[in-house]
């Protein structure tokens, strides 16, 4: 009976080794940026794919949204508080799309460095509060970064 118990012990050790390896690889994966989207800094530094469509996420820069014509074309800038990227989009923007708001866009980079979005999705943050509270919060943090954008 003893060899069987010993064998079971070996198997458990092998199993733990396997789990350990798995954890190590997972941690490694999270250290190497395992992202399905890119930040404006990545784009400016040339880390984003040139030929392919990808997701670009960031905050809409205050005062950067402009509608040059009567059609649905919108131009705005996205930032991650490091670098900015100009974005063009033709279509209807979601309700939550505002300046200073986080958005995720999907599209391709044009050779001139402008990101042509096929889709714009507005991200809402995890804060929920009545408007009055939000207003008073804004007044308090007017000098620093907005409270909701901790990144």
């Amino acid at each position: 009976m003893r060899p069987i118990r010993r064998q079971r012990l070996y198997l458990i050790i092998v199993m733990l080794l396997g789990i350990g390896t798995a954890v190590a690889f997972t941690l490694k994966a999270f250290n190497d940026n395992l992202m399905f989207f890119f930040s404006p800094s990545d784009v400016v530094m040339g880390k984003a794919p040139a030929r392919q469509a990808f997701r670009l996420g960031g905050m809409v820069v205050d005062g950067s949204v402009e509608r040059p014509g009567d059609d649905l074309l919108v131009r705005f800038k996205l930032t991650d508080y490091g670098k900015d990227v100009a974005v063009e989009y033709t279509g209807i923007l979601p309700d939550l799309f505002r300046e200073g708001q986080g958005v995720v866009t999907k599209g391709r980079l044009r050779p001139d460095g402008v990101f042509v979005a096929e889709e714009v999705l507005a991200k809402h943050d995890e804060n929920y509060m009545p408007p009055e509270v939000a207003g008073s919060l804004k007044k308090e943090t007017v000098a620093g970064r907005p409270a909701s954008e901790e990144k």
């Binding site: 989207f37 996420g57 991200k123 995890e126 804060n127 929920y128 009545p130 509270v133």
Partner: peptide, 18 residues
């Protein structure tokens, strides 16, 4: 870190909901 918001109630500091 995509479109879905982060945790609101179960954050370690205080919940970010009024």
């Amino acid at each position: 870190n995509t479109l879905h918001q982060g945790p609101t109630v179960t954050k370690f500091d205080k919940p970010s909901i009024h």
